[in-house]
Simulated assay, not measured.
Amino acid sequence: MSRRRLGYLLKHANLRLAQHTGPALEPYGVDGRELAVLNVLDSADPLSQQEAATRLRIDRTTMVAMIDTLEGKELVSRRPHPDDRRKNMVELTPRGRDTLRDGGQAVDEAERAFLAKLAPDDAARLRELLDKLI
C-alpha cells in the first residue's frame, strides 16, 4: 500500500506541519524558508551569502533572491566583505533578530501542536530518529 511508503508519510507529515507553521509565521511576515535563513545568519560573525547558501544547501541564485526579499523587509543588511569586495556579508538587523526570536517561538508552539497526538516521549524520539537520518 503506497500510504505506508516512507516518502508518502514524510511528504504528508511535512504538509500537515506546514499547515501549522505557515499560519503561525504570518504575523511576522516571513515563511519557514525565510526563518531558516534568518536562523543561519544569526551568528556572532557575519556570513557571506555564499556561506549561508552552503549551510542551507541551496544554490547561490536562490540565496541572492531570498536575501533580496529579507533586505526588502528590513530583516537583514548587506555590506561588502572587507577583504573581497565581490562578496557580500549579511547580518540580521534588530528587526530581523526580533522576527527570528518571535517567529521561532511561534514555530515551536506550532510544532508542539502538530506533535500533540504523540506522547511526549514519542515526539522526542521522532525528532531524534529524524535527526539521525539527516
Rank of each mutant, 00 (worst) to 15 (best):
A53Q: 01
A13N: 00
E74K: 13
L92A: 10
A119H: 15
N39H: 06
G72S: 01
A124F: 06
L41P: 03
L118A: 13
I67D: 04
R112G: 06
V107F: 05
E34T: 04
A24E: 06
H81T: 03
Q19E: 14
G32H: 04
E26D: 15
L129V: 13
Q19Y: 04
G103W: 04
A52F: 12
V76P: 01
L35W: 07
E111M: 10
K11L: 12
D59F: 03
E51A: 07
L9S: 05
L9M: 14
S2F: 05
L15M: 11
L41M: 04
R97A: 13
M1V: 06
H81Q: 09
E74W: 05
T69P: 00
D122L: 15
T93I: 08
R16M: 08
A52P: 13
A18E: 09
T99V: 15
M89W: 15
R95W: 05
K87S: 01
L115F: 15
T21M: 05
L17F: 10
L130M: 05
L47I: 00
L15I: 06
Q49P: 01
R57G: 03
L129C: 03
V107R: 10
T93R: 12
I134E: 12
T99C: 14
V37T: 11
E91K: 07
D31M: 05
D31C: 09
G72M: 04
P46I: 02
I67E: 03
T61Y: 09
L10V: 14
D108Q: 10
K87D: 07
D84P: 02
R55M: 11
E26S: 12
R78W: 10
P82T: 06
Q49H: 00
H20A: 03
E128R: 15
T54F: 06
G29N: 04
Q105F: 03
M89N: 14
L25Q: 05
L10A: 13
R97V: 01
L75P: 05
L6I: 12
L70T: 02
P80K: 13
L35K: 11
R101H: 12
D45Q: 13
P94S: 07
Q105T: 00
A106D: 03
K117M: 02
Y28T: 02
E51H: 02
A44T: 06
I134M: 05
D122N: 11
V30I: 14
R60Q: 13
D98L: 14
E128Y: 10
V90A: 10
D31Q: 03
Y8L: 07
H12M: 09
L126K: 01
L126Q: 10
E109Q: 15
T69H: 11
E34Y: 03
V64R: 15
R101V: 01
E71G: 08
G22S: 13
Q50W: 12
P46W: 08
R16G: 02
R78F: 11
A44V: 14
E34H: 07
A106P: 07
Q50C: 00
S77C: 00
M63S: 07
M1Y: 01
